[in-house]
């Protein structure tokens, strides 16, 4: 499947449909899914089936339960890239501002620091005690620029709007 980088929703949905087409509902993906095993409300088979049956990409919120372990793709006898399909669905739901708060938080940290974690005071001290070198400075302005030109800032804004005015 092509990466989701163009801003044409219709094209993306048709990409997803085409990628899901070979599925014949054998269920190996669900049987291999660690999340389905403990939380059957998330079923990769049904996520794909919905697309094939309805021709639309249903954004239910459960698509975010995918842990991206890629076991479903590994075992699919038809070579359907389920994780890629789920990534595409999540990209569509993120465009509408439907994103779990923890992921928004992560994106905000990346936006302002260029990384997903800050070294705590304790870690900085530990690094020094262990004789580890100082880490090269990350240019956060570069990251901000990339987030801006690739539409991530827009998505974060849309999330905040959706959060303020629930439908």
């Amino acid at each position: 499947m092509r990466p989701v980088i163009w801003d044409d929703d219709e094209e993306r949905v048709s990409d997803v449909r085409q990628a899901a087409q070979p599925c014949f509902q054998c269920g190996v993906c669900a049987a291999s899914c660690p999340v389905f095993r403990v939380a059957p409300e998330f079923n990769p088979r049904i996520a794909v089936d919905e697309i094939v049956q309805t021709g639309t990409v249903a954004v239910t919120g459960r698509e975010w339960y995918c842990a991206y372990c890629l076991m479903c793709e590994q075992r699919c006898p038809m070579g359907v890239a389920l994780c890629e399909i789920l990534v595409a669905i999540k990209n569509l739901s993120a465009r509408d501002g439907k994103v779990p708060p923890s992921i928004v938080e992560m994106m905000d940290v990346i936006r302002f620091t260029g990384k997903v974690s800050h070294p705590s005071k304790g870690t900085t001290r530990r690094r020094r005690e262990l004789g580890l070198p100082e880490l090269p400075e990350v240019d956060a302005a570069e990251v901000q620029k990339l987030l801006e030109v690739t539409g991530a800032i827009d998505r974060l804004t849309r999330y905040r709007e959706a959060e303020c005015e629930p439908q």
Binding site: P3, V4, I5, W64, C66, A67, Y68, L86, V87, A88, K90, N91, A94, V99, S102, I103, M106, M107, I110, L146, L147, T150, G151, A152, R155
Partner: peptide, 11 residues
């Protein structure tokens, strides 16, 4: 790879 890619694969 999971959260950031799911948020925006382009980013």
């Amino acid at each position: 790879p999971n959260s950031v890619q799911s948020f925006s694969q382009y980013t």
